[in-house]
Amino acid sequence: MEQVVATIFNVLILSSMYILVALGFAFLFNMLGILNLAHGAVYMVGGYIGFALINSAGVNPWVAILIATLIMAGFGVVLERFCFRPFTGDFNRIVMVGVGINVVLQTAVNALLGTRMQALPSFFDGYLRFGVVSVSYQRITIFLIGAALLVLVSWFVRRTKHGQQMQAISQDIEGAALSGINVHRVSALACAIGSGMAALAGCLMGSYLMLSPYMGDLMLIKALVLVILAGIGSIGGIFVTGLILGGLDAVAPVIFDGAVADAIPYIVVVVVLLLRPRGFFGREA
């Protein structure tokens, strides 16, 4: 019973974190076809900024997470303006610049904080108990923040003017420009929101698991898995694929040994992609 509840929470937490990061990646990918290879590094740096603020500067954890999110959102604006916008439509150079940013951020973290794994401290101590089962407040909080943010982002994309403009750009970029939508400004906004969400996920994951300078590489691949299996252009599908991948990642270690458990999800992904190459909710023919 204990195990079951713990696993369910693992599924929920991992899924919500994966979805947070993948949505940010999907915004730029769907709107402008940009393969943002720096996205994983943004997630990683967000976690480290939170860690540094709490551990070295003694900042309140909530404030630290907020600052980390805002800093990386600002970084997202810079990224869009100077690294992606000049090369719109040039796949090669966007990949190059993404790898470059990735290397710079990883190297900077390595040089400043060392390669040792670190963890953000808990924001909450204690356990919520019902009967024999107990769940740490920490995990509950992480999940609640993640879930709340996901609700907020879906509302933003569906209901607000800027969210609808983002959808319009991903459905027909030229039609969007001709409607008077400032494609550059909306893209910058999307990159800011996406980077902020990734940074926030980095902080939360850093307190749930550990921080490592290379954690972004793995998360980037997970984000790609979610976006591609959902189907290009589908935002809602990412929630479904996020739950699937989070489920696989959380349940596999319960059943299999470490390395085998790491392999299972990707074998499943390859099989699914072979059966449904365009993903579950893909829009293109």
């Binding site: 609808q164 959808q167 319009a168 459905q171 027909d172 030229e174 039609g175 969007a176 001709l178 008077g180 252009g233 829009r283």
Partner: peptide, 13 residues
Amino acid sequence: ILVPEGRRLFPYL
């Protein structure tokens, strides 16, 4: 303002 060739609507909205 241009009403473009092929309409270029947002099909899923």
